[in-house]
Amino acid sequence: MLKFTEDHEWLKVKDGVATVGITSHAAEQLGDLVFVDLPKVGALLGKGDTAATVESVKAASDVYCPLAGEIIEVNDAITGDPSLVNSDSEGKGWFFRLRLADASAAASLMDRDAYEKLIA
């Protein structure tokens, strides 16, 4: 199940675990990223908590936790090479995996069609 948030995150949900990243639209708006700060594995985050920070040449922006849960894995590849987020935002540019506190919560998020309408 692929879902999107109004804060421009995407989630791929499988067996109660969401892989989370930022959308290509968001990556384009931010510009070339030069730094990514990821959460710690084991962190318990609520919906809307700051989960990560991304920085371009010009500015820093927060990435929010799209749903409540526990961080079980982070993508160290993007801290080593932040440009992966620009070049492959919905693939190699993923940020973290979140074990959802409520596996059914993702159902309420937008599907791709709804997200595309939001950014159109």
């Binding site: 510009g31 070339d32 371009s56 040449v57």
Partner: peptide, 12 residues
């Protein structure tokens, strides 16, 4: 203009 389509990094 803060940037053009090329982006801040490449412009720099």
């Amino acid at each position: 203009p803060v940037q053009y389509p090329e982006g801040v990094m490449k412009e720099h």
